[in-house]
Design a protein around this nucleic acid. Structure first.
Lengths: 214, 214, 214, 214
DNA sequence: AATGAATGAGTGTTCATTCAT
DNA sequence: TATGAATGAACACTCATTCAT
């Protein structure tokens, strides 16, 4: 009756949503600058709200970090699906660039991106599915080596994580050249690979932490 | 070699050296398993000594971490010098493998390897010098692209850091295949690189943190 | 009786009174189940209103607790006056049973019943007056020992508080047998009491807390 | 060799034990004065040590409270056993006085004495056993009613808890007269009791809290 | 010299109270 | 007026570092 159909209504909810947004942005900034050990008080301060507000939106600090991870994985997976739609074999490459770009933009949560809570594991599973499909497409079009596995796609992003975390703000684009060189390395070639790929099982265990170490 | 020839004269020094060794090993293990946030008590416990002893050898926790970093950088630089001696163009590749191997073995200190204290900066400078020389040698022998810079060599190791930190114990060798693919990408090729390399200045600033943000 | 005859004129007052009632009931329930440390949010939730409404009716959490205490003391005092009217010496006993019953029903506020705010102290004074009169009546009819003081009557209820708080929901009627035994102990007897009664002054100080320890 | 047989040795341990004692005493004092909601900082301050020291001896605040409860229950049970040794029917009465005295001396932990953690439940079980034996002895010697149950013995102490908690420091001996009157009420008498005793099962459930309400 | 007990600033989290909507 | 989002002081607990033994 009153909540209606117009998306501009619901007064308090609007502020609340705004605060949530502010908090996620603040967390991204603060964690990017100081690492995940930064205090929640600092995050709240940067967001311009009290700690209590932070805890109203996110039950724990972990949940706040997970929110960053979810945002990131969600957009990465979505980008993967879009790239897949082209089905011309180039999807994998643009997907990698896109995913790298987003990792760089949200580097605050990188230590938890590939080894986070159970809550985000579902998204990582989706990521693996999309990555496998993009790889198959790229291989079908002869754009990458046939002996690559979908786990190799994950490893590419993990390696970019290392570049991003090391270069931080000093050279936030350093990953671009690295990815270019790496993509060249992925192209079909006569050179044999002597090291085996990760197994699918290993890849899953990497991102599925022991159920709370206590 | 240098610790003298009088074996019976400085017994305490020997004990002290032994304790230092035990502590560094314990720190490597504990930090590898639990991250740098692991407590110093845990390190002391694993080393089989009291915290007081730890603090006698290392004035702060940071100094202990720096010791790990120093060990690692020292052996990496030494390996680089050896590889350089061959002067047949293959030194760079074996150096990368060697450095990667050691990063994996001492992964506990990776978050501080390329961005540590001023005390370790000298070693990183040495690393950059050796890397530049190895690159020049490899380029002279036509084994890698001519447009690579010595900063690109650093980036390779940073990317491997990401792989190691993500795969941890689940797949401690995952970096090998990654390095193989990456080395293929470094080979001379017709493909132009569109992204610029880091400048030497940037590379230095990356590894030289602001003098304690306090 | 007193809330007036014009039903359409003061609708808000009625709603307000209803909300007040809901809140007091909710507080009684919640505090009984979880103790006085239960949060005000929980009380508001159970009452079906927002916290803001709670704070409109009661300026502080303490005031809400005091309201419970007032309710309880008011009905206990009223019951005492009624019992006194019989003037047959049995009033004291039925009064004790009545007061115990109400303490059990409102056990949520017991920690503050006999040591609450200044606001409720007036009612406790009235309680002491009635208790003294009931005791005198009972003694006049030879139903209880002549060496009892009105403070002893208070102590009976304090002891019942202990039974109620310990047995909680598991045995909400445990106090009945305790009171029976205690009343037997109050009957005239040849046995001398070796411990003195509380003085009236002590009894008053017990229930009059220092003016906010701050 | 060095720890020897003389009880005056073991340097650090002595201080540690002393600190433990100081902390328990401080906790008793502070909780008695301010209730169990008093902060651990306050307890540490009164003990003259840092919070860290408190947490070295007691893993949680709950454990500190449990230590108080254990001390109290242990001495109460021991006193019960001694009283039982007399086997002349008077043990129950002196036991009740002794237990009451100790409840008064350690009143800080009363809210957790009869409903504490699982860790202290064993002692409460021992208490129930001793109480039952003392009651049987007293009944055998005709000093108390034959229709009393061992649960009634517990209830006596719960009622004394109420008196102690209400009178606090203002009248720390008020429980003595209450106990005298109550004991008179326990003597053999022609008066029937119309209310049933707690069952043994109820008595146990009263003191065995739900396994952590979460 | 070695030990580990002691320290206390700092962290994540809660909750009575206020206030914009 | 009713709501519940926002607030921040206060709490339990941790951990790098110091120091008495």
């Amino acid at each position: 009756m009153s909540t209606g159909a117009t998306p501009t209504e619901r007064p308090l909810r609007r502020d609340a949503a705004r605060n949530r947004e502010l908090l996620v942005e603040a967390a991204a900034t603060v964690f990017a600058e100081q690492g995940l050990d930064a205090g929640v008080d600092e995050v709240a301060r940067v967001a311009g709200v009290g700690v209590g507000t932070l805890y109203r939106r996110f039950p724990t600090k972990d949940a706040l970090i997970d929110a960053l991870v979810q945002d990131l994985l969600t957009s990465v997976v979505a980008a993967g699906r879009e790239a897949l739609a082209r089905a011309d074999g180039t999807g994998l490459e643009s997907f990698l660039a896109y995913a790298a770009e987003h990792q760089a933009r949200r580097r605050g949560c990188l230590p938890r991106l590939w080894a986070g809570d159970e809550v985000t594991e579902g998204l990582r599973r989706e990521f693996r599915v999309v990555a496998a499909e993009l790889l198959a497409d790229a291989q079908a079009h002869g754009r990458v080596r046939g002996d690559l596995t979908s786990q190799d796609v994950s490893v590419v992003l993990w390696s970019i994580r290392g570049v991003i975390e090391t270069t931080k703000d000093v050279a936030p684009d350093a990953w671009r050249r690295h990815l270019e060189l790496l993509v060249i390395g992925l192209r079909p070639s006569d050179v044999r690979l002597s090291s085996p790929s990760l197994t699918a099982d290993q890849a899953q265990r990497v991102t599925t932490p022991a159920p709370r170490p206590r």
